[in-house]
Simulated assay, not measured.
Amino acid sequence: MADRKHGAPVPETHSTIRSEDWDSEDLSGRRYERVAFVDVDMTEATSRGATFHECVFRDVRFNASVHSDSAFTNCVFKRCVFFDATFTGCKLVGSVFDDCSFNLLKVEGGDWSFAGLPGADLRGVTFREVRLREADLTKARCEGAVLQNADLSGASLHSTDFTRADLRGSDLSALDPLVAKLKDAVVDVRQAVTLAMALGLEVRSD
């Protein structure tokens, strides 16, 4: 399993919800703490203002689900599927993802600081206006991903593959261009200067 940020232990759950069919379920306003969700189908489920704290999700299907202003804090997701899922203004601080599928995932706003996504296959996903401060994206595959106006300050980006990724407007101060893949990545002028300086170049305007 992927390590939790700063070595925090996997939550000890106190109850289990197993093999439930929550297809198209409205989870708005619900609160769960230290619950294990195992083989639960949340396809096309929706939530607004729901709270999941220190929960563990195993083999849960979030396909085409839509979550707004909900919190999944300090949770662990193992072998979960997020195909075409949408998270808007959600808080996933400290959550860890292990062997999950993220095809067509869309994230707009919200706080994913300290999230653990090492080695994650994030090809083609979209993160806009998202706080990813000190997130672990070590060796993550972000080819063709959209990471616009994201706060990646302090993030772990060693060997992250940003080939063809759109990084415009994001904080790349933690990115070492010598240990990340940036072929055909799209950046703005300010970011280009930051990357050039990281390579030891002297940037002049004349």
Results as ranks from 00 to 15, higher is better:
94 G>S: 09
58 R>V: 10
51 T>C: 02
24 S>Y: 12
57 F>H: 03
101 S>A: 12
93 V>D: 11
32 Y>R: 09
69 D>H: 12
68 S>R: 15
67 H>C: 02
113 S>L: 05
72 F>A: 07
29 G>A: 03
104 L>V: 09
34 R>M: 07
44 E>P: 00
87 F>M: 01
34 R>A: 13
40 V>S: 03
80 C>S: 06
74 N>F: 15
56 V>W: 08
83 F>R: 10
100 C>M: 10
106 K>T: 11
28 S>N: 02
107 V>F: 10
46 T>Y: 10
66 V>F: 13
118 P>S: 13
95 S>H: 01
91 K>R: 07
29 G>W: 05
35 V>F: 11
110 G>I: 00
44 E>M: 11
78 K>C: 02
61 R>C: 02
118 P>G: 10
46 T>N: 06
123 R>E: 09
57 F>M: 04
96 V>C: 13
66 V>D: 11
76 V>K: 12
85 A>P: 01
40 V>R: 04
72 F>V: 03
128 R>S: 10
109 G>M: 09
65 S>E: 01
67 H>E: 01
62 F>Y: 11
33 E>Y: 03
27 L>E: 03
109 G>P: 05
47 S>P: 00
33 E>C: 01
119 G>I: 04
55 C>P: 02
115 A>D: 00
115 A>R: 08
89 G>K: 04
82 F>H: 08
77 F>V: 09
117 L>R: 10
106 K>V: 07
63 N>V: 06
126 T>N: 03
111 D>I: 02
134 E>H: 11
133 R>Y: 04
28 S>M: 05
65 S>R: 12
60 V>R: 05
123 R>W: 06
127 F>I: 04
103 N>T: 14
54 E>S: 14
65 S>Q: 07
94 G>K: 12
78 K>L: 09
60 V>C: 14
114 F>L: 12
83 F>T: 04
61 R>N: 04
27 L>R: 08
71 A>Q: 12
